[in-house]
Design a binder for these strands. Structure first.
Length: 242
DNA sequence: AAACCACACAACCGCCGTACC
DNA sequence: AGGTACGGCGGTTGTGTGGTT
């Protein structure tokens, strides 16, 4: 038997929030706080929404300290560095970027940063199809824009059985537990550092122990290797094939 | 001008850990 | 000790928008 649903789905509004709902939620929380219970909050606030939906709306959009707009290069670097170390632990990554939410970072990674790493310009599918061979050529010789500009000090050291495998995994977020386990476990970075992330004791991305020069160099040639193995991301669907 | 397509981002879903009874 | 309710998380889906054909 599964758990009881958190709300009566038939009687709650779903989909995009209206300005009026935003105002109601914001004013209620500013006046009374969350009150320790998201499930009862919508009823108290006069909203026909699921408590979880209210929580998400507040945390990801309405909170006063939310930072909207473009990610800076520094933020890019921090995200890349942490992603390489701990994988898709968005909440932990978000904890290192004040004003950014896990959802924000996750979306940013999936839609922009991953492509930026791959050095793929956002091109229309039709163009991509028409220029498929040309793109393959570009992906082989074009340096990944982000990593080529990275300060190696911001990058973690990662020791994996196969560096090529790491590169493609890093780019595609496909960590394989059977082959090399979770990345933070195979890192030479200590568990202590990882714990620091967890408990938010560091106000900024911690100094990482070693240079990532080797990985950086590999990244520079990775698209060559990856494309050579026919394991590249298509420009239109983010799905990587091997 | 309309249809189509891809992208960006908001929102939802389902699972997990934990606190509480 | 076991069950329940809740918060939090990551993955996925839905929707609006703008560009292209």
């Amino acid at each position: 038997m599964g758990r009881a649903p958190c709300c009566d789905k038939a009687n709650v509004k779903r989909g995009p929030w209206s300005a009026e709902e935003d105002t109601k939620l914001k004013q209620f929380i500013e006046r009374y706080g969350i009150g320790g219970n998201w499930i009862t909050l919508p009823h108290k606030a006069g909203l026909k929404r699921c408590g979880k939906s209210c929580r998400l709306r507040w945390l990801n959009y309405l909170r006063p300290d939310i930072k909207h707009g473009e990610f800076s290069d520094d933020e890019d670097r921090i995200i890349c560095s942490l992603y390489a170390t701990i994988g898709s632990r968005w909440s932990i990554i978000a904890a290192q970027l004040p004003g950014r939410t896990d959802n924000d970072i996750k979306n940013y990674w999936n839609t922009k940063l991953k492509k930026k790493l791959l050095g793929i310009n956002s091109q229309r599918k039709s163009t991509a199809t028409a220029n498929h061979h040309q793109q393959q050529h570009q992906s082989q010789y074009q340096q990944p824009q982000l990593l080529s500009g990275l300060d190696s000090s911001c990058l973690p050291t990662v020791a994996t059985p196969s560096q090529d495998l790491f590169i493609s995994s890093f780019l595609n977020n496909q960590y394989d537990q059977m082959s090399f386990g979770r990345v933070e476990r195979s890192c030479s970075s200590s568990d202590l550092i990882f714990e620091s992330y967890l408990y938010g004791e560091l106000g900024q991305a911690p100094p990482l122990e070693h240079s990532y020069e080797e990985i950086k160099n590999l990244i520079n040639t990775s698209t060559n290797n990856v494309a050579g193995a026919d394991a590249y991301c298509t420009s239109h669907d983010d799905h990587c094939r091997t």
